[in-house]
Design a protein around this nucleic acid. Structure first.
Lengths: 334, 334
DNA sequence: TTGATTTAGTAAAACGTTTTAGCATTTTCA
DNA sequence: TGAAAATGCTAAAACGTTTTACTAAATCAA
């Protein structure tokens, strides 16, 4: 039961392979194939259920109608939600998405790029990680469209779509200050990516703007790939050792861990203790009380990414790079 | 700057393409290529950074080292967590995963199967949906390994890995009954898949076992693809119209919506009102009070799926189908 | 009427691999 | 010693498409 090939169709229709190919690819008119032949071949294709072998097609044309999406971790709801939106939108334009997680390992990221390259994906959407600049540069040299998102690699000349993390974090801290908070902590991760750095910068700047001295010990950097139990231990230390009356968590999974700690310590979140999370999560709204959060406009980000990609793919020559910064929204809940 | 091909390597090494191919594929010894030549070619490959074109390879061999994973919705944490686990495990064995969401549309599911087929994926992992039995049967006829998970299609003779939903749901309801609950509701979805049906069966059986009459109105079926606002409205109706003292939610997203309703109604969850969710979610543990839940052993499910697939791929002849039912765990929290 | 153009289609090369069949040499061992 | 087996390697076909360059007939313009 081998799959049908274009040859079988040609044979059945008593025309050449070339003719069938032209018809399949909508070039029949242009190549002046008669209506009668077009009809006949189309009928045979429909009846037989023939589907072109995409592998052969890719080998010949060098492209695949597939867009590669590289994220940090598909099980993180921020990424899985964005992936879903991107998938939907790409799908409507006839593109498929392949995704994979880097787990913040340079090595895995490089392997993924290699794999995508050898699969001839047409374009790359990458939430990048420090250390793969060179690999991305190679893609750019080969004229493949590349869109970075969530995190930028400023030394690279390419497209970027992301939220304004500096402003968002600044705004969050200012809202704490307006509530009269003095001992404001930031719990963040130690990964060295722009988006995370910006969040810390926004924190520091807001403190400085309001003449609050920056206390090293209130900025907790959690190692990225460590077990949650250890993270919880570290956060617990922070809350026990220091007087804290407000805390901004720089990622949603850190906020989840942090909320578990607060629950364990019976530290209620009220006028005396404020919390803001980053990247919304179902748990935040549901929490008692609801947790305020910095929300990235996922829909808009996905939309923008796809638009950039499609523009690139449609145009023969390289379009100018774009750096699109979308404001994030502080959602205050109580 | 075209990519290197095996031809370039052969030229540089002054040997034939065949020889290079044998070396790349570890068949050098078997084909009695001398050590000197092997070394030389390997050196050139390493230095040049040559990577075989997977597309060409797939075209020739008919397989791809890619496993297709079809889920209902990658943004649902149950699926994204399982996808991540499967991806990890497959990756370690040299397989890549392509995933895509069906959104519970038969049409989209069929398209995905067609796409995967024309990409020559080596095996399929599918969380299926009623209406694609025929399409899957075709894959089986073509001797492609297929593992269904989460939901079974009993009319199909193939492998299945899933949790014991009937027992789990039965157990959950019994725990309500032991707490003295009498008015036990089930909030489920209207999709017609075995896993969901079993959850309802377990509910009914547990009631019957304890001589509690089944009240049609306490079983709420939410249309699958509807907006969350409507779901919330429906659940609110249930709680307002009927006296309810315990509720089992048949999926995690329904539980999330349900908890939002309870919060809105100021219905606290305490001795007088019990809740159990399905498929754990970060929000459940964090909720005040913590929400009990039926937990599927994700790690074990992923492990089992991959093991089945790899066994199939390793063996030349078709292995007997296996139906593996893994117990789900009721996690009682308070 | 004739040369140019258009119409309707096809043969064959190319994409980059894997694999079969085979060709010299050299080695083995009865 | 000589036939068989092993060693070391390669030419060419095949996978299923797309696309370039071509042919032959029909139509058109002058």
């Amino acid at each position: 039961m081998k799959a049908l090939s274009i040859k079988d169709i040609a044979l059945k229709a008593k025309v050449s392979i070339t003719t069938v190919s032209f018809i399949i690819n909508g070039k029949a008119k242009e190549k002046s194939i008669s209506d009668a032949v077009i009809k006949k071949v189309q009928k045979i294709i429909a009846e037989s259920g023939y589907k072109p072998n995409q592998i052969a097609r890719s080998l010949r044309t060098g492209n695949s109608n597939i867009i590669g999406l590289i994220v940090e971790d598909i099980s993180n709801s921020f990424f899985s939600r964005i992936a879903r939106l991107i998938e939907d939108k790409a799908y409507k334009k006839g593109y498929k998405i392949i995704y994979s997680s880097t787990e913040n390992s340079v090595e895995k990221a490089q392997e993924l790029i290699t794999m995508f390259k050898s699969r001839k994906v047409d374009a790359y959407i990458i939430s990048p990680i420090k250390g793969i600049e060179e690999d991305i540069q190679i893609l750019l040299n080969e004229n493949k469209p590349v869109i970075l998102f969530d995190r930028n690699l400023p030394e690279l000349n390419t497209n970027y779509v992301g939220a304004n993390h500096f402003v968002a974090s600044h705004q969050a801290i200012e809202s704490f200050i307006k509530q009269g908070k003095k001992n404001i902590a930031l719990v963040t991760t130690d990964i060295n990516v722009q988006q995370i750095i910006e969040r810390a910068e926004g924190y520091k700047k807001a403190l400085a703007d309001h003449a609050i001295p920056f206390d090293e010990e209130l900025l907790l950097k959690i190692p990225f790939n460590q077990a949650e139990a250890d993270t919880i231990k570290q956060i617990k230390q922070l809350f026990k050792n220091k007087k804290v009356d407000a805390v901004l968590f720089a990622t949603n999974y850190l906020a989840i861990s942090g909320l578990k700690v607060l629950k364990e310590l019976h530290q209620t979140i009220d006028e005396n203790f404020a919390v803001i999370g980053y990247d919304d999560h179902e748990a935040f709204e549901l929490h008692t009380p609801s947790i305020s959060t910095i929300q990235q406009p996922l829909e808009e980000i996905a939309e923008t990414i796809i638009k950039l990609i499609l523009n690139q793919l449609a145009s023969k020559n390289k379009l100018p790079d774009q750096q699109i910064i979308i404001p994030a929204k502080l959602i205050l809940r109580k």
